[in-house]
């Protein structure tokens, strides 16, 4: 019998929209504070630290972290874990520039691991666009691991 037959399938959430309605803008003050927090000085050319890719897309996507977990029928209190994060930039994030986020859940796959027991592996994709339209300046794929203690 395969592992998959031992527990119920993961919720069918692929395709769920994560399009946001919030406008996200990195202020010079926030960028300076973030840069200080990770041990560097802010750039002098108006570009924001590139790690804003993660912050901006998470904050301005169409669901909160708890909301994404809820969509996956997972309680955020059970501790989602970051598995990986990838980003492709076609342009820099600029201080003072308003952005909006589009995206979707790509997959939720139930697996069994020796270390974590039964877990769902969530993959979602987010894009950061200028708020006034135009092509995305970046696309990010994030993978979270959702341990399913109740199925262990």
């Amino acid at each position: 019998m395969s592992d998959e037959a031992e527990f119920p399938p993961a919720p069918q959430v692929a395709g769920t929209s994560l399009d946001g309605t919030k406008i996200f803008t990195v202020s010079a003050e926030e960028n300076a504070r973030l840069c200080r927090s990770v041990g560097v000085a802010p750039a002098a050319d108006g570009t924001a630290h590139p790690v804003w890719y993660y912050v901006a897309t998470q904050v301005a996507m169409g669901k909160t972290v708890a909301g994404v977990c809820e969509t996956c029928e997972f309680d955020v209190e059970d501790g989602p874990m970051m598995g990986s994060s990838g980003v492709r930039f076609s342009g820099p994030i600029m201080v003072g520039q308003p952005y909006k986020v589009g995206g979707e859940i790509l997959s939720l796959v139930r697996k069994k691991s020796r270390k974590l027991g039964v877990m769902d592996v969530l993959t979602y994709r987010l894009r950061l666009h200028p708020a006034d339209g135009g092509d995305a300046i970046l696309e990010t794929d994030n993978v979270w691991v959702l341990p399913r203690k109740e199925l262990a």
């Binding site: 590139p50 874990m81 598995g83 990986s84 980003v87 492709r88 930039f89």
Partner: peptide
Amino acid sequence: GTIEAMDSRF
């Protein structure tokens, strides 16, 4: 230089 792509595993 510019970071064009980056993938990291936790």
